Measured scan of single mutants.
Amino acid sequence: TLDDSATICRVCQKPGDLVMCNQCEFCFHLDCHLPALQDVPGEEWSCSLCHV
């Protein structure tokens, strides 16, 4: 889900339109996540760090 609060991106440390991982609660810009996300993920989304 998009989170436009004062939360910062885990990768670039900047605020903005972010998606939050449902497991670790880290936030990412779509372009900062590795691999980059093309679209906003669904409600139950886990980042690539949680899939390691």
Results as ranks from 00 to 15, higher is better:
5 S>D: 07
34 L>P: 13
22 N>L: 03
1 T>M: 05
52 V>P: 13
10 R>Y: 08
51 H>F: 04
7 T>K: 12
52 V>E: 11
25 E>V: 03
17 D>S: 13
47 C>W: 00
17 D>R: 12
44 E>S: 12
21 C>S: 00
47 C>M: 01
34 L>G: 14
48 S>V: 03
9 C>H: 00
5 S>C: 10
42 G>V: 11
28 F>K: 04
32 C>Y: 04
34 L>K: 14
22 N>A: 08
33 H>E: 15
28 F>M: 06
44 E>I: 05
16 G>F: 03
42 G>M: 11
25 E>L: 10
13 Q>N: 14
22 N>W: 04
7 T>D: 13
37 L>F: 05
38 Q>R: 13
41 P>F: 04
34 L>R: 15
25 E>P: 02
11 V>Y: 03
16 G>Y: 01
2 L>Q: 13
32 C>I: 00
47 C>S: 06
10 R>M: 10
42 G>K: 14
45 W>H: 11
46 S>V: 14
19 V>L: 09
24 C>H: 00
26 F>E: 13
52 V>Q: 02
11 V>M: 14
3 D>W: 06
26 F>D: 12
10 R>C: 05
44 E>T: 09
26 F>G: 14
52 V>M: 07
44 E>Y: 10
46 S>N: 13
24 C>P: 00
7 T>M: 10
37 L>M: 11
17 D>F: 11
48 S>Y: 11
36 A>I: 04
52 V>L: 05
20 M>N: 06
47 C>R: 03
48 S>I: 01
45 W>T: 03
32 C>Q: 01
49 L>Q: 15
34 L>A: 15
44 E>D: 09
29 H>I: 00
34 L>H: 15
39 D>C: 08
2 L>E: 13
21 C>E: 04
17 D>V: 05
20 M>W: 01
17 D>K: 12
38 Q>D: 07
40 V>I: 05
15 P>M: 09
39 D>P: 08
26 F>I: 01
33 H>Q: 13
2 L>R: 08
49 L>N: 15
26 F>H: 05
17 D>P: 02
49 L>P: 14
30 L>S: 10
20 M>V: 06
29 H>E: 00
44 E>G: 12
30 L>G: 05
16 G>M: 03
29 H>W: 00
37 L>T: 13
44 E>F: 04
49 L>W: 14
17 D>C: 10
26 F>T: 02
13 Q>I: 07
32 C>M: 00
2 L>M: 13
31 D>N: 15
16 G>T: 01
18 L>V: 06
7 T>I: 12
38 Q>L: 08
8 I>A: 11
12 C>Y: 00
45 W>I: 08
43 E>S: 12
43 E>Q: 07
44 E>K: 09
25 E>Q: 11
23 Q>Y: 06
38 Q>I: 14
46 S>Y: 08
29 H>F: 01
13 Q>T: 11
19 V>I: 13
40 V>E: 04
17 D>H: 13
11 V>S: 06
35 P>Q: 02
18 L>K: 02
25 E>S: 14
24 C>R: 02
23 Q>I: 05
15 P>V: 06
28 F>I: 12
5 S>Q: 08
36 A>C: 02
28 F>E: 06
28 F>W: 14
29 H>D: 01
35 P>D: 04
23 Q>W: 05
15 P>C: 02
2 L>A: 11
37 L>P: 10
3 D>M: 03
15 P>Q: 03
4 D>R: 13
23 Q>C: 12
9 C>L: 00
22 N>V: 09
37 L>N: 06
2 L>I: 11
